[in-house]
Each structure stands twice: as structure tokens, then as C-alpha cells.
């Protein structure tokens, strides 16, 4: 008999035996399709506490699973697998393995906050989605995306000097993502500039690579920003039970 709604079965649970004889009956190949059971192997009792301890996750305990957030959700309308109500349930029950199956779509929340205004319990699901994405990142479940690496190189410079130098941001980005600096589009850009030969602009560009521009009197701001960023990082790491960054 064919398996109805095969799409609901996880592929790894479908098992076929190439050679199988049961009670003298040859049931090799698709005749022996079995569906392995799905079971919950363990609960992570601290999962809800960890999410709740991150900024935005504070109200997760209020959820009573009405589904208003999923109903209202912009992303769910496009991708039915994006289901905030379900993830809140998994977190509250401590079903970490199930949650991690969706680690590549949880962060796709567009923060439209329609769920926030629909929720009858003020769970603020949009913030819970943020806290959950943050949790995934802190726990190392999600590798850094290129855009995140770019953001890091960018903000590091802003924190350090209050200004950015475009060339350095690009060079750092290429270096950290393992890409060659000689990108075709960059070569075209530079050769175009050289052809038109805007002397002063090129001089400025050249100087900027040597003397990195800096906002005057930035030192105090830099220290304050660094302290704040460090403080936030440490607080979040403590929230999910990780050591300080130095001990990583």
C-alpha cells in the first residue's frame, strides 16, 4: 500500500531494505518500506529559563498555545514551516533537538510585530524569536553568515575610531571570508578610477589607507561602547550558562 502524506514523514525515518525475506516472503526494495518511530529522547529542563534570561524572552512562560502569533505571522504565510507558536511550545517543553531542526529558519522573522499585537497574553513573540536566534548563535548552532562577518568588520572600526575606512572594511571582509581581494568588480572599479585620474580623490584614498581616519576625541566614546558591548555579551553568555568570552 502506498504511504499517504509521505511529505509528513521525515526522510531519515523511511527505511527500505534492499534484501529482506520475512517468513519466506521476499519483501526486498520498496515492498519493505518501514517508518521508524518518532520519540522524544530527553527534555532540556533549562531551555525555557535560558531563552527567558535573554533580552526579549522574558514573557515566554505566559504562552498558552492559542496560535494567534502563527495566524498573524507574515513569514508563516510564505513558509508554513515558520511557526512561532510551535517553537515556543518546544522551548517551554525543553525539546531542544526538535527546535534545532528549524535553526535555519527561526532567524527569518522580519520583526513586523503583527504577532505582538495579536497575542492575547502579551508574550511578545517577535522578541522571543529574537532571543531564540540569539540563543542559537551563542550556543554555536548557527555559523556566521557573510553578512554578519561584514557587519562585524564594519562595527569594529566604528567602535574603534568613530569612522570607517571603506577599503579596510572590504579588505577585512575578504580576508575573514577567505576571498581574494582581486574581485572582478573591484578591479573594474579601480581601473575606471585610474583611467579618469581624479588626482585628489586618489590621493585622499591612498592617504586613508595609511592614516586611518578617526573622529576627534573618540577615545572616551570608544571606551564606553566597548564596555557596554562587553557587558551585554557577558550578560547573555551568563544567561545561557556559558563562561566568559576569554574562557571560550
Amino acid at each position: 500500500m502506498p504511504i499517504h502524506e509521505k511529505s509528513l514523514i521525515r526522510p531519515e525515518k523511511l527505511v527500505e531494505h534492499e534484501e529482506l525475506v520475512i517468513e519466506g516472503m521476499d519483501v526486498s526494495g520498496h515492498w519493505s518500506t518501514f517508518i521508524e518511530g518518532r520519540s522524544v529522547p530527553d527534555y532540556n529542563e533549562t531551555l525555557q529559563e535560558e531563552i527567558a534570561a535573554l533580552p526579549g524572552g522574558e514573557n515566554i512562560h505566559r504562552c498558552w498555545q492559542c496560535g494567534s502569533c502563527t495566524n498573524a505571522c507574515t513569514v508563516n504565510a510564505l513558509n508554513p514551516d515558520f511557526n512561532p507558536r510551535y517553537w515556543i511550545y518546544l522551548i517551554r517543553m525543553g525539546m531542544e533537538e526538535e527546535l534545532l531542526r528549524d535553526k535555519d529558519i527561526i532567524w527569518q522573522c522580519v520583526s513586523c510585530n503583527k504577532c505582538t499585537y495579536a497575542c492575547p497574553r502579551d508574550v511578545v513573540p517577535e522578541q522571543v524569536m529574537k532571543a531564540t536566534s540569539h540563543w542559537l548563535e551563542l550556543k554555536g548552532h548557527t555559523p556566521k553568515s557573510p553578512s554578519m562577518i561584514f557587519d562585524e568588520a564594519f562595527s569594529e572600526q566604528v567602535f574603534e575610531r568613530g569612522k570607517i575606512e571603506d577599503g579596510l572594511v572590504l579588505r577585512e571582509f575578504f580576508k575573514r571570508t577567505g576571498q581574494p581581494v582581486t574581485q572582478p568588480w573591484l578591479v573594474a572599479l579601480v581601473s575606471g578610477l585610474v583611467k579618469r585620474f581624479p588626482v585628489f580623490y586618489l590621493m585622499k584614498l591612498g592617504l586613508a589607507t595609511v592614516f586611518r581616519p578617526r573622529t576627534r576625541g573618540w577615545g572616551k566614546a570608544r571606551d564606553a561602547i566597548e564596555e557596554y558591548v562587553h557587558e551585554c555579551e557577558e550578560r547573555n553568555r551568563r544567561a545561557v550558562g556559558l563562561g566568559t568570552k576569554g574562557a571560550k
Binding site: 502563527t70 495566524n71 508563516n76 508554513p80 511557526n83
Partner: peptide
């Protein structure tokens, strides 16, 4: 059916009830 309805609209003839059946995870 375990669902909190999101909205009630109309297709011109009948009422259209939208929501999520939370037990089977389907709209």
C-alpha cells in the same frame, strides 16, 4: 478544534474563517 481564530472574512457568499489548527500544525 484547538485554534484561536485570526480573522473572519467573506468570499461574498459565505463567511471565511482563518486560523491555525495548532494540534496538526496546519493553517
Amino acid at each position: 478544534i484547538k485554534a484561536r481564530i485570526a480573522e473572519v472574512t467573506s468570499d461574498g457568499k459565505r463567511l471565511l474563517v482563518k486560523g491555525e489548527d495548532t494540534l496538526v500544525k496546519r493553517p
